[in-house]
Design a protein around this nucleic acid. Structure first.
Lengths: 236, 236
DNA sequence: TTGCAAAACTTATCATACAAGTGCAATTAC
DNA sequence: GTAATTGCACTTGTATGATAAGTTTTGCAA
């Protein structure tokens, strides 16, 4: 019936109330990642609500990527993971008027900045990983492998900036662009993509931020051109 | 017990299955915004599942910002709204190691690109709105008003690019930066912010994309400097 | 000590019941 | 005739209890 006599309700929903309290606990870091939460029954008991309410609250938290739920096991706090955000953004973008052209347009300045920052900050290990991603791309025998190598290169570049926001935003956009990237690589061939990646990597190894930006800008121009050439077919 | 004999299950969860099907209907645009959905009971009947499952599915869709639920009323399809995505991103960022410095670093290239594109594409009405936002900023008598005017200016700029992705991403970052922006404006004073906004607006009116980028870059430098000077105190 | 089976616990789903909020239609008051 | 009110049908919110199915722990036997 009620959560507790001491604390007032903040939401008109019991479910939202439980969600808010659990989220506060998790976000504040009081519960470490992987830490098991009490079972639905226990939570219901301690919140003085029915299991129904707790269940719906846990579902919501799972949707937001905060907890992991498996039948038979106690729920666990999940490590921070952009997947939930990506799905949310995906749902939003697929409903709004954003087209592929809009996505690439927003991607371009980010990639250019990333290239510049990576040139200034990449560690030796990160440089090696980048080279490895390009080797993957070079050795790719299928379109699927080529796309994976391509995505990996750009992701590693974002990581090399040391700024997790870049990784998150780029990963989100990349996910949405995955289909288009498949088309792009098919159109321009992976050879050209590899060549440009090598150029970018070279500027980063040389710690030349300006050149890195220029190389990435060039790369983006190629991608946009190929995308336009392949036609921006709407999703089926 | 089962959804339907004809179509196979895609998820191990009945809830996820229902979520997927409803989402597909909504995202595909078959259901217009504001359109009422069948009641939980009807949905449960047509999916051949219990009302519990439908309820949890609807809760998830509400969390993702796809439907609006009010007690006593039938659920309605909600107009595309970045709020759910913002909350998701907020939860993610507040748990990861992203600091204010990281946020502003990611914001900078976006704002610069936005300024350049706005200079090329802004319509006469949009120019007038931008001027209006600056008038608001000039007339602001409280910090709160100044912050609102500031946010509005940058948002209108993003809209002037005609690219909804910019609006979405920037709105998300802006929301997260709201507290810091309050601090920044307090530190540098709204007079300086207004002056720089006027400069940016002038370059855009002049359709000088290059100058617009330079002016915005200057503006971002000021913001970053003030933010560093005010110290990046962690949220309480 | 090790291997395995049973028990205990947990989530997943269902069914039912009642409270509470909304919208509409019939009724009543003027 | 019109406006306010009442009442009903429908809907979501919450609680309870029951069964199925999966996981972890316990306890016993080899």
């Amino acid at each position: 019936m009620q959560l507790s006599a001491a604390t007032p309700l903040l939401s008109d929903n019991l479910v939202d109330e439980v969600v808010g309290r659990l989220k506060a606990h998790i976000v504040s870091g009081q519960l470490a990642a992987e830490a098991p939460l009490p079972s639905e029954g226990r939570l219901a008991e301690s919140f003085r609500v029915s299991r129904t309410v707790v269940r719906e609250a846990m579902r919501i938290l799972r949707t937001q990527g905060l907890v992991e739920i498996t039948q038979g096991r106690r729920p666990r706090v999940k490590r921070a993971d952009p997947q939930a955000t990506i799905e949310s953004l995906d749902a939003l973008l697929s409903r709004s008027t954003g087209s592929l052209a809009h996505l690439t347009e927003a991607r371009r300045p980010l990639e250019i900045e990333i290239a510049g920052l990576a040139a200034e900050r990449a560690t030796a290990e990160q440089l090696e990983s980048l080279a490895g991603a390009n080797r993957e791309l070079a050795a790719a025998t299928s379109l699927e492998q080529a796309v994976i190598g391509d995505v990996r290169f750009h992701r590693l570049l974002a990581e090399a900036t040391g700024n997790p926001i870049f990784v998150l935003v780029l990963e989100t956009i990349a996910q949405l662009l995955l289909e288009s990237r498949r088309r792009t690589i098919a159109a321009s061939g992976q050879a050209l993509a590899l060549e440009e990646h090598q150029k970018i990597l070279a500027t980063i190894v040389a710690r030349d931020a300006l050149a890195a930006r220029a190389a990435m800008a060039q790369h983006m121009r190629l991608i946009e051109r190929d995308l336009a050439g392949a036609g921006q077919a709407p999703s089926p």
